[in-house]
Amino acid sequence: MTHDASRAAGLLLGFAGDRLFGDPRRGHPVAVFGTAAARLEQGMYADSRARGLMYTTVLVGGSAVLGLALERATRGRLLLHTVATAAATWTVLGGRSLEREALAVHAFLDDEDLPGARHRLTYLVGRDTTSLTSREITRAVVESVAENTCDAVTAPLFWGAVAGVPGLLAHRAVNTLDAMVGYRSTRYENFGWASARLDDLANLPGARLAGLAVLAARPRTAADAWAVWRRDASGHPSPNGGVVESAFAGALGVTLGGTNRYGERVERRSTMGDGPAPAVTDIPRSTDLATHVGAVAALMISASVLARRAVRRTAER
């Protein structure tokens, strides 16, 4: 086994671990990171982009250094390297947990329990859920499943392929910081700017990978997904969310986008897709698509790692 083969095997095993087990209920390493980040924020916070950049650099850099230490400790010990890569991959992926949360909201809607669905939806989205209708809750779930398939599955897999364990841990740090301080508010408008922009940059390749995986996972609707992606993605405020949400909209035959409320701020997004608004039954359809997109992406990423090794060997001859 080569180092590249070890990395590819670790990524696949970690993906399988996430699908089988999801996130642990207690003691998740990401929760430990979040606690450390919150404490550091107390000491470093200032209404300043420069201070926010320092904060982001310390935490993302520290995560990358930890990953680099793990890579070096397992260098030349390919079985241990596979295990370390698999453990890091399982730690940073969140596809199974995303599916569980989406289906939990679906269960409340299926029982016509709007208060329960609105509350459970807060686990998935940052928008105000207090007065959402069943249709609006459903749209929010499908959009969250689509966007987070990039954030929690395809983007970390991409960085794992490119940079191994350091890439996996650094990406999860970036994604976690964006969720903590990157959203728009008076407190974080400047301090969270660096985290938000870095998250956009880090997810650029993962979003495109997710879009391509949608086409591969649903070949019968690939033409529709591609057409909606090309036409509607740029209307989304996120350079990455628009790609994945538009591809999902085309593949599922629904229309996403519209008006969202975030506290006192109202955001009116352009619509994506040509079908009707998603129905409650479209939630499990979206999670099923997300599962297949993750599997396709994991196979594509692992194959690319092995192909890279083959190209290098050919070039050396």
Rank of each mutant, 00 (worst) to 15 (best):
Ala8Trp: 07
Asp128Arg: 11
Tyr188Gln: 12
Tyr55Thr: 10
Arg100Asp: 03
Leu12Tyr: 02
Ser48Lys: 13
Ser286Met: 08
Gly61Pro: 12
Arg184Trp: 03
Leu11Ile: 02
Phe248Ile: 06
Leu12Trp: 01
Asp128Gly: 05
Thr133Gln: 02
Asp111Leu: 04
Leu132Lys: 00
Ala50His: 06
Arg197Ala: 04
Leu169Trp: 09
Tyr188Thr: 13
Val162Arg: 13
Arg139Pro: 05
Glu41Leu: 01
Phe15Pro: 08
Thr149Gln: 03
Gly241Trp: 04
Leu80Ser: 09
Ala227His: 10
Ile283Phe: 00
Arg100Tyr: 00
Pro166Tyr: 03
Ser234Met: 04
Arg231Thr: 05
Ser195Gly: 03
Val145Thr: 14
Leu306Met: 12
Leu11Glu: 08
Leu66Lys: 07
Gly167Asn: 15
Gly242Leu: 10
Arg261Lys: 04
Ser234Ala: 10
Ala310Pro: 01
Ile283Val: 10
Val243Arg: 09
Val266Lys: 00
Leu98Lys: 02
Ala217Leu: 08
Arg268Lys: 15
Gly192Trp: 10
Ala223Cys: 11
Ala207Tyr: 08
Ala223Val: 15
Gly258Lys: 11
Leu53Ile: 00
Pro284Gln: 15
Gly14Ser: 11
Ala161Ile: 14
Arg268Val: 12
Leu256Arg: 02
Val145Gln: 12
Leu306Tyr: 00
Thr186Ser: 14
Tyr45Ile: 02
Asp178Cys: 02
Arg72Ala: 13
His292Ile: 04
Ala87Val: 13
Gly94Ser: 13
Gly27Phe: 06
Thr314Ala: 08
Ser185Pro: 15
Pro276Asn: 08
Ser48Trp: 12
Ala298Arg: 14
Gly10Pro: 13
Ala5Gly: 15
Ala64Leu: 06
Trp159Val: 08
Thr221Ser: 15
Ala249Cys: 02
Ala88Phe: 08
Gly253Trp: 09
Asp128Lys: 06
Phe248Val: 14
Tyr262Ile: 08
Asn240Lys: 01
Tyr262Asn: 06
Gly116Asp: 00
Ser134Asp: 11
Gly10Met: 14
Ala303Lys: 01
Ala69Met: 05
Leu121Lys: 02
Arg139Glu: 05
Ala5Leu: 15
Ala16Asp: 00
Gly167Pro: 13
Glu189Met: 07
Glu143Arg: 06
Val266Asp: 03
Gly167Phe: 15
His28Trp: 10
Arg7Val: 13
His171Trp: 12
Leu306Val: 13
His236Gly: 07
Arg26Phe: 11
Thr314Asn: 09
Ala38Asp: 01
Ala213Ile: 01
Glu101Ala: 06
Val58Asn: 00
Val83Leu: 06
Val280Thr: 12
Arg220Trp: 10
Gly17Ser: 04
His3Trp: 12
Gly258Ser: 13
Val174Phe: 10
Glu267Met: 10
Ser286Cys: 09
Leu20Ser: 02
Asp18Glu: 06
Ala279Trp: 13
Ala290Ile: 11
Leu124Gly: 00
Thr221His: 15
Ala73Ser: 08
Ala104Asp: 09
Leu103Ser: 00
Thr271Pro: 01
Thr281Glu: 15
Thr186Cys: 07
Gly67Ile: 11
Val60Pro: 00
Gly52Lys: 11
Pro219Gln: 07
Asn240Leu: 05
Ser131Lys: 12
Leu59Tyr: 10
Arg51His: 11
Gly17Asp: 01
Ser302Asn: 03
Cys150Glu: 11
Val30Glu: 07
Ser195Lys: 05
Pro166Lys: 10
Val254Ile: 14
Asp199Asn: 10
Ala307Asp: 05
Asp113Lys: 00
Ala202Gln: 06
Met180Tyr: 15
Ser131Gly: 07
Arg261Asp: 05
Trp90Pro: 12
